[in-house]
């Protein structure tokens, strides 16, 4: 019962996602073929896995506990706040901020930087795709 509920939840997350623009879809496809090479049996990215990557706490680049949510907040529809500088961060969810996930160059830049800040390493293709699916679906 619990499992089917989880599956249903994961399903809703995928169904409720906004479509990517053509450039972003191309980037997602690149990540997919990379992920297939990284892990055999890979089928598609998963927003639920992305949520875990996004919200789980790690000892980051500064040697302190940090998660993506530390700055972007738990609710991606809301304004976040940079924990180091105090500067406000516009909502990450494309539902709240249509500029999000629209420019591949910016998306690549922030994934590189923020994985380093939180995980002290770059994200794998699968992790990046999972996170992008999560952000894209977070209502």
């Amino acid at each position: 019962m619990k499992k089917s509920f989880l599956l249903l939840f994961a399903f809703t997350l995928t169904v409720n996602a906004k479509g990517f623009n053509p450039q972003m879809q191309q980037y997602i496809n690149q990540l997919k073929s990379q992920a297939q090479k990284e892990k055999s049996g890979f089928t598609d990215f998963n927003a639920k896995r992305g949520q875990k990557i996004f919200t789980s706490v790690h000892i980051g680049k500064r040697g302190k506990n940090i998660s993506c949510s530390s700055c972007h907040s738990i609710n991606l529809q809301q304004t976040g706040k940079n924990i180091h500088t105090g500067k406000l961060i516009k909502p990450l969810s494309p539902f709240a901020n249509t500029k999000r996930l629209s420019k591949v160059k910016d998306v690549k830049k922030w994934l590189r930087r923020n994985f380093n800040d939180v995980y002290k390493r770059e994200g794998s293709a699968m992790e990046k795709g999972d996170v992008l699916y999560y952000i894209n679906s977070a209502k």
Partner: peptide, 12 residues
């Protein structure tokens, strides 16, 4: 910039 006051702020 990749270690900008403890934060990765790298640019291309």
């Amino acid at each position: 910039l990749s270690d900008h006051f403890g934060v990765d702020a790298s640019l291309d």
